[in-house]
Nucleic acid binder design. Structure first.
Lengths: 205, 205
DNA sequence: ACCTGAACACCGTTCAAGT
DNA sequence: ACCTGAACACCGTTCAAGT
């Protein structure tokens, strides 16, 4: 599993082939099938390996703070291992996903969310985190020719947004100026706070 | 493009090979490269083909209602073409994504969201929609052996959630009973409303 | 019980040769 | 300018044969 994570971090999802992993482990490609059934299971095991730590119990915290911290843990894990973001979105039944549902949703009762809202609320925050996860993974995967560092990539995207037709894409053009120097991590947390504020507002109704 | 969408709907992402598309069009595989640069571009073009209609202008609407309707349009498009959900999350710079940013974010000024909150608010709602899109695409792709219809699939997942360890996954177990007969579309809309409520609440601060 | 590694049935992509 | 289709350099997965 450690070898698989190393290859994934270094070469990405496409780099993790059964042949490459077998070579790294000095064995035959067929041998790996004695431990995982197929490539999906191999990726799920690697994902589980990375996610388990970041959704650890923090039972003594205030619940909103726990939701912020677990969300940020998942965000940072995907920042460090972009392939995790892709795989989480692709295999919703893997154990890593259950840990995220539990970590985020498990705080809703303590937050005072009434029972009839809990499933919808948990689903919303999990979906939001997964959405950001997928985007970040895609952003990290993408390369713009020779520009690789973040600020240059953002600049390239911003240039593209700024060049869109003003009649069809006025808001996208408006955003292009703010895109250039925003902070992904802060924006992610701002979204978590919008969600938390929405939960609190709905409880009052 | 129509032929590509047909193959994708019938066989999924794995079924759309250059050889299969060439055969359907009675041509050679190499010919397709005169129209798209690679497989990613082929999928982006097919995605654009499906998404453009559902994010059409509805300028005369109340903004919150427009956001709900555009979100639902994306949801329904992915319900009909699951591969769209996967590809949206994987290629954030494609034109289809810009249309979604514009359709959802473009309503925020009319909603009264102050300028310094607009980018974060747009990002949050787009990420949420993409998160649900990815999950729904993955759910539709997955098959549980011989059970294929929705209620049986949900039942199988619910059984799995109910069988989890009670100490480690109390909330997941709690959810397993509601999972069985919830409505994905309603739950999606409930999430949109949570974000709209959160955006409204943040404006008051 | 686990490993080996050749073999099978594919891929995306390229490119000389055609029209 | 576009098409053809064989060729290249790979894949995931299987399986007879080994230890």
């Amino acid at each position: 599993m450690a070898a698989a994570v190393e290859i994934l971090d270094a070469e990405g999802e496409a780099g993790l082939t059964f042949r490459a992993l077998a070579a790294r482990l000095s064995t035959g490609a067929g041998a790996i099938y004695h431990h995982v059934a197929n490539k999906t299971e191999l990726l799920s095991a690697a994902t589980e390996h990375v996610i388990t730590d970041v959704v650890t119990d923090t039972a003594d915290d205030r619940p909103a703070e726990a939701i912020r911290r677990i969300s940020l843990g998942v965000f940072d894990a995907i920042d460090a291992h972009p392939w995790v973001g892709t795989h989480l979105s692709r295999e919703p039944w893997q154990t890593a996903m259950l840990r995220i549902w539990e970590g985020l949703g498990g705080r809703l009762p303590a937050l005072g969310v009434p029972e009839h809202h809990r499933f919808d609320a948990a689903s919303a925050i999990v979906s939001y985190v997964l959405g950001v996860a997928g985007q970040n993974a895609a952003n990290a995967r993408r390369d713009f020719g020779d520009v690789t560092d973040r600020s240059h990539v953002l600049g390239a995207v911003a240039d593209r947004w700024a060049a869109m037709d003003d009649d069809e894409f006025p808001f996208v053009r408006y955003l292009s100026t703010r895109l250039r120097d925003h902070d992904d991590r802060e924006q992610f947390l701002a979204g978590v706070d919008i969600f938390l504020a929405g939960i609190a507002a709905e409880d009052d109704r």
